[in-house]
Every structure is written in C-alpha cells, then in structure tokens.
Amino acid sequence: MTSFEVFTPDDRREIAFHRTMAEARGADKPGIVFLGGFRSDMGGTKAVDLQAWARAQGRAFLRFDYTGHGDSSGAFEDGCIGDWFRDAMDVVSALTTGPQVLVGSSMGGWISLLLARHMPERVAGLVGIAAAPDFTEDSMWASFDADQRAALTAQGRVELPSDYDDGPYVITQKLIEDGRNQLVLRDRLPLPFPVHLLHGTADVDVDMSRPLKLIDHADCADMRLTFVKGADHRFSSPECLALIQKTVMEIC
C-alpha cells in the first residue's frame, strides 16, 4: 500500500495527499497541483505519472483526495462541488507556496476554475483535461427525465448507470442545488494567465462542445485548445500522458 500524508484543516475533515517538494533546480518554477475528477482519486494514472515527471524536473507537486474520495474522510454521497472546492482551496493555501499550475481533470477542471476565480494570485496557469465546468447543471440536471427529477425531489437522490467499474452514480439533490451556486460559465470569468485545454474526440462523458463553450466564455488572452483524435475521457494513453507533460512545460 502506498503511504500518504493527511492534512486536517478542521475537526471534520482529513484530506489525504501526496507531495513532492521542489529541489534547488526547480525552486524558481511554479509548483504543480493535480485536481482529480468526480469519484476519482489521487492514485489515478494521470496524477501519478505527472508527479513522477515533476519529480524528475525538480518541481514541487501536489495531488490529493477530496473528502468522500479515495483515502480522505467522509462519504461521497454527503459531498458537493462547494465542499470539494473548499478542500482544494484549503489544500492549495496550506500545502503550496507561491503561484501554482493547476492541472484539472474532468470535475477538477471546474474546481480549478473556481480556484482561479477566488485566488487568481496563486495561479500561474491552468491545464484542463476533459474539463467539465458546470456539469451538474448542464449535463446531469439537463439530461434528467421527469421521473428522475421527481425522484430527486421526493427521495433526495437518484442513481445513474456508470460505464466504469465502481457501480452506479448516486446523484443527490444537494449536489445539484449546490452546483448552481458554483457555476462558472454564467458570469464573467477572468483568467489572467495561460490556459491550455486538452480534450479527446472519443470522450463520451464530456462533449467536445464543452471546451469550446469555455473558450468562448472566458476572458483570457492566452487560451488554447487541443483535440486528440480517438482519445477517451480517461486521457491516459502514453501519448496523452506525454502531451500533458508537454503542455505543463509550455505553461511554465
């Protein structure tokens, strides 16, 4: 079992994390923070591979589990976007120094944009991998039929099938309602740093229109989008991992 450290921002949360400190040769470069996706954990291929790359570069790196995910405390069904954003903000504030390159995968792309909106002085750049801002409203709620919406209201939860191996998604009324307080594609979204978005054309979870909408909406002077033909939502083939590394290097 791989060891990890635990950060306790308060008496209700224990956030598991892995951190690599910068070496002298990388001390003058921004650190890197990986933000995982919905129901993902920090042990995923992209996070682990990017940490190994950062270590080889002498760069500071941080990956962590939101509450209710992986090795952190709490139950997934009790959480919502606002809770996981608070986890990310507390972790970045306490466990990193100076500006960071945020690498957000799927939901982590949304969390990264929330961080950028609330603490832009701590963001050196942003890399979105199949970024899914506002997905609780624009993807989940928008796709629910009348029966699902009624069940969500009456029972406070609804189960959605999953294409992965971790069982059905339990979507709570709290997740949907809180998500409406965290939307980033409705109001002005200034991003005063480089933003590079990576997206696979075979992604069946986040439509290719989503990064295009983000580019059209955001106020950013240096914003780029790369589509990778045939890449799926995991975006973790050797070629995709190499592209993530290259993109982080370009941001810096």
Results as ranks from 00 to 15, higher is better:
Glu250Met: 03
Thr8Trp: 07
Met208Pro: 03
Ala202Gln: 06
Ala221Val: 05
Thr136Gly: 03
Arg12Trp: 05
Thr67Pro: 13
Arg186Ala: 13
Trp53Glu: 11
Leu95Gly: 01
Pro192Ile: 04
Arg210Pro: 06
Asp165Ser: 06
Asp147Phe: 02
Gly104Lys: 09
Ile244Thr: 14
Glu14Tyr: 01
Ile32Gly: 10
Phe144Cys: 13
Thr247Met: 03
Leu113Trp: 01
Arg157Ser: 13
His18Tyr: 00
Gly179Pro: 12
Gly128Leu: 13
Gln57Ile: 07
Leu185Trp: 11
Ser236His: 10
Gly70Ile: 00
Asp232Cys: 10
Arg188Tyr: 03
Asp178Cys: 00
Asp41Trp: 13
Leu95Asn: 07
Leu214Cys: 08
Cys252Gly: 13
Val101Asp: 10
Gln148Cys: 02
Gly230Ala: 15
Lys46Glu: 01
Ala56Trp: 07
Phe235Trp: 04
Asp71Leu: 10
Ala54Thr: 09
Thr136Pro: 00
Gly82Leu: 11
Thr97Glu: 15
Gln155Trp: 01
Ala54Lys: 03
Phe34Leu: 07
Ala124Arg: 14
Leu160Gln: 15
Val127Glu: 02
Gly128Phe: 04
Met223Pro: 06
Val33Ile: 11
Tyr66Pro: 02
Glu5Phe: 01
Val33His: 02
Phe34Asp: 10
Arg63Val: 01
Asp203Arg: 08
Asp41Pro: 13
Ile32Met: 08
Ser3Asp: 14
Ala124Cys: 05
Ala132Lys: 01
Lys29Met: 13
Ala94Tyr: 01
Ser73Ala: 14
Thr96Gln: 11
Ala88Phe: 13
His69Tyr: 03
Leu152Ile: 12
Tyr66Ala: 10
Ser105Cys: 09
Phe61Asp: 04
Asp216Gly: 14
Glu250Cys: 01
Phe144His: 03
Ile15Cys: 06
Arg86Ala: 15
Asp11Ile: 02
Cys220Pro: 07
Val91Tyr: 06
Ile81Thr: 15
Met223Glu: 01
Pro194Ser: 03
Arg188Asp: 15
Leu152His: 11
Gln182Leu: 05
Lys46Met: 04
Gly230Asn: 14
Cys80Val: 05
Leu241His: 05
Ala218Trp: 01
Thr45Ile: 11
Thr2Phe: 10
Gly125Arg: 09
Phe4Met: 00
Thr45Ala: 08
Leu62Phe: 09
Asp165Tyr: 00
Gln148Ile: 07
Thr45Tyr: 00
Leu152Asp: 07
Gln173His: 06
Glu177Asp: 13
Ile215Thr: 06
Ile171Ala: 02
Glu177His: 02
Pro133Tyr: 07
Arg13Gln: 12
Gly70Glu: 10
Ile15Asp: 05
Leu243Asn: 05
Leu243Ile: 04
Ala116Phe: 11
Val170Arg: 11
Val91Met: 12
Met119Asn: 07
Ala132Pro: 14
Gln245Ser: 13
Ala231Pro: 12
Ala154Leu: 09
Leu185Asn: 09
Asp203Glu: 09
Ala131Cys: 08
Pro133Leu: 09
Gly179Val: 00
Glu239Asp: 15
Asp163Ser: 11
Leu152Gln: 11
Glu137Met: 04
Gln100Val: 07
Asp41Ala: 02
Leu185Asp: 10
